[in-house]
Amino acid sequence: MKTPTKGPVFLRFLIVSLFVFYMLLPIVATYLFSLATRWDRSIMPEGYTWEAYQTAFNLSYFRITLKNSLILSIASCLVSFIIIVPTVYLTQINFRKFRPLLDLLMIIPFAIPTVVLALSYVRVYTFQPITRSPFLLIMATVVYTMPFMYRSVSNSVDAVDISVLTEASQSLGGDLWNTLTKVIMPNIYPGILSGMLLVFATVFADFTLAKLITGAHFKTFPMLLVEQTQIDGNVAAALSVISFTLAWGISMVLLWFSSKASKSKKAQPSDKAYIGK
C-alpha cells in the first residue's frame, strides 16, 4: 500500500469541506435568521431574540395547522401499518410466489408524481363527503409513502425468515394470535417502527398533496410555512426550524435504530427522494 501523497489529501479535504459548507449554509442561515433581530448589514446577525417564535406561536393558525399535521401524520402511519404489515406477512406465509408481484405493486407509487396523484384523486372522488376531505389526503399520503414503508417491513421480514418462525411457533402449539404477538412482532418491530417514523417525517413535511387535495379546508403546517414566506420572513424561518428540527430528530432516531438493530436494514437512500419536495 502506498501512502497517499499530499495533493490528493488536500483535494479530498477541499472537496468535502465545500460540500459540507454548501449543505450546512441554508440550514444554519435559517436557524440564525429565525433568531436574528437585524441581519442585513453584517456577516452575522446584530442581535438575537425569540420574538419570531413568539409571533409564530401566537399565529391564529399555528395550533390548528400543527394539530392537523400531527393528526395527518399519525393517521397515515396507522393506515400504512394496517394496510402493509398484514399483507407482507400473509404474502410471505401463504403466497410466497407472489412476492415479486408485491414488490412491483409497492414500487409503483415511486413513479407517480405527487401532483398527478392529487389530480387523479380530485377528479375521481368528486362526491361528498369524500371529495377534498382529510380522509382522501390520508389515503394519498399512504400511497405516496407506501414504497418505503413496504421496504422497511419487507427487509425485516426477510431478515428473520418469517415462515420458519411461524412454522416453529405452530409446531409448538401457538395459534395465530400468539404467533403474531409473541413471535413475529418482537422480531420485525424495528423494521416496522423505522418505516412508520419515515412515513411520519415524510407526511409531516408534505406540502404538495395537502395543498392540492384539501387546500384551505384542512390547512397543514407546511402550508402555513409557505404562506408565511410571503408575509414575515423571520416567522417563516422559525416555522422552518420547527419543521426541520422535528424531521432531523426523527432522522437521528432512525439512524440510532438502524445501528441498534443491525438485523433490519437501513432505509434505502432512494426513499429519501420523496421527502417533501
Binding site: M23, P26, I27, A29, T30, F33, A201, A205, F207, P222, L225, V226, T229, G233, A236, A237, S240, S243, F244, A247, W248, S251, M252, K272, I275, G276, K277
Partner: peptide, 16 residues
C-alpha cells in the same frame, strides 16, 4: 439528515 431539508424550508433557506 440534509435530505430532510427540502421543499419549502429549503427554498426559503436559499431566499434568506
Amino acid at each position: 439528515v440534509t435530505t430532510n431539508f427540502a421543499g419549502a424550508p429549503l427554498a426559503f433557506g436559499f431566499i434568506i
